[in-house]
């Protein structure tokens, strides 16, 4: 087990998964403080280039907290995100980045526990992969 504390970028949706992350905090359920969240209207808007940008800059893993079927905009938003992730993973392969560094799961607006569990598991698996910079070829400075 590595001691490395990976940085995780979360994309959450304003109406569904972001409230779940809020609820986790409200209930003082702890997860890694190296988790940073960007809230967008719907996670189907997350672009491949954002994910790749994050890896380039030293984020170790990107997690998309999708609305699943709860999405108020469209019920296929997770399918759309899946496609974006597939495309992103193609590029990641080319660049030698482990495709397990991007992950998506559906979170409902009260899914505090699932969110915390995802963060724990993702942190652990990313820790075992080690620093992203070993893959993107940047210096560890």
């Amino acid at each position: 087990m590595s001691d490395y504390q990976p940085k995780i970028l979360v994309f959450s949706s304003d109406k569904i998964s972001d409230p779940a992350i809020d609820l986790a905090g409200l209930l003082k359920k702890h997860y890694s403080p190296k988790v940073y969240n960007i809230t967008v209207p719907c996670t189907s808007s997350v672009k491949s280039r954002w994910i790749l940008h994050a890896f380039e800059k030293g984020i170790d893993g990107v997690f998309i907290g999708s609305d699943g079927t709860d999405c108020p905009y469209r019920s296929d938003c997770s399918d759309l995100s899946s496609k974006v992730i597939e495309q992103t993973q193609e590029v990641m392969k080319e660049r030698g980045i482990n495709i397990a560094r991007v992950k998506m799961a559906a979170l409902c607006s009260v899914c505090a526990d699932p969110f915390v569990n995802h963060m724990k598991n993702f942190s652990e698996s990313l820790a075992s992969l080690g620093n992203i910079k070993n893959e993107t070829g940047q210096s560890n400075e």
Partner: peptide, 14 residues
């Protein structure tokens, strides 16, 4: 910036 629900409360242990 949400520094309560997604920071001080979530990481009150650290």
């Amino acid at each position: 910036a949400n520094i309560r629900e997604q920071c001080s409360w979530a990481h009150s242990d650290r």
